[in-house]
Design a protein around this nucleic acid. Sequence first.
DNA 1: ATTCTAAATGAATGGCATTCATTTAGTGGG
DNA 2: CCCACTAAATGAATGCCATTCATTTAGAAT
Lengths: 228, 228
Amino acid sequence: MPASTRAPADPLHDAKPRRRVGRPAAAVLDQDGITAAALQLIGKSGYDGFTMAALARTLNVAPSALYNHVSSKRDVLVLVQDHLTSFVDVSAFGSGPWDQAVRSWAWSYRDVFSKHTPLIPVIAVLPVTDAPKTLAMYEAVSAGFSHAGFPQERIISAIVALESFIFGSAYDVTAPADIFDSGSMADSTPNFTAAVEQQDLEGYEKPADVAFNLGLEAMIARFGALRG
Amino acid sequence: MPASTRAPADPLHDAKPRRRVGRPAAAVLDQDGITAAALQLIGKSGYDGFTMAALARTLNVAPSALYNHVSSKRDVLVLVQDHLTSFVDVSAFGSGPWDQAVRSWAWSYRDVFSKHTPLIPVIAVLPVTDAPKTLAMYEAVSAGFSHAGFPQERIISAIVALESFIFGSAYDVTAPADIFDSGSMADSTPNFTAAVEQQDLEGYEKPADVAFNLGLEAMIARFGALRG
DNA sequence: ATTCTAAATGAATGGCATTCATTTAGTGGG
DNA sequence: CCCACTAAATGAATGCCATTCATTTAGAAT
């Protein structure tokens, strides 16, 4: 007649944080699981809804448990950013011509991070040592530049210039459509207002895409001329 | 003996928030004062130390008083960003040749916001209506492009492309010097590691400046060719 | 067996932006 | 001249958040 210490019953509708105190027989958390859950949570709730408490909830764990595997929220963001980088397309650096490779790399890079702009401040100052997949991307791109005959001493600068443009353009994708509507100040800004109107006439293409294309092609054209 | 309810005395070393409850005879706060104090506080304590409570303290006011003049912390950041924009140099668009004007505008724009990268996410999605000085900058730049014979329908795209590059490059300025040190993974990233080493050999100039120059000149050269 | 370490819980902690009730000062209409 | 209204301050909540800490338990190592 042992007071059967059975689980809380109610198998249905009970995804609550029920687990008895102390180390569980099998580990519940690891960095990969945390990363996957974080990515999913961000997808569902955005970066505003992305809190350590919410992350813990989706993992059915107490918030403090996370800190056995990551040292801070920023740490989780680093894991997420590195994971996302593996979705950036570097395949063309192995096969196609240099300019096409840069094109597909840059567009996919921008597209991935335009949905994750809050990561940009993190990436921008993150040592590559802390992000292995990101490092792998740089290696693929560097190799592509090198094989295309790019002068060694300018490879990093060129990549950094492209990357800076990509990050800035990722923000641009998220801007509201009417961001340039000068409203009541239109009278005092005739040149700007006229330019905005002319652009609106042209455009069935997304303005962010047009601007990105313009800048990217400028860099590709000019950088391409540097090759030996 | 007399429990003399006199003011806390200590005229020295007493910049404490002393003011009796109720509306003061003369208003203590206004948006300009808040903006100036915010800018000063950010300069001294950085964006981490920039809290509504700290801002209130420097203004010798209760935190809640701020909300009579701004509706949120974001509002303060918008005020700061717009104020900073007036430090961006657009003067050359009135006088010199187009390419030189773009050059000085872009460099000064990057320099101003490289010390204020936390504002970039704010700027990037901010309707120009809410930032009059920013709008004025766009007007000056648009006028410069227009007078230089730039096709109307491409002016905004070109400015956006340049601006995206500028914002991304502002982040780059803040990156640690050893950000590309691949450390123990150097073996598996030969091309990247070699490129980083070659760059380091070259450089007495700041890497961020070299990259910015490279990208900027690419855009100037290409965009310049669009002029009619 | 005992000790050590890892991984969980649950209860603080301190900081933060923001809101609300209250108080007081000036202003405009009767 | 009074009265209502509005604006601008205080001070006391509120609720959320990341993070820390003491405690408990499981398994591995000695």
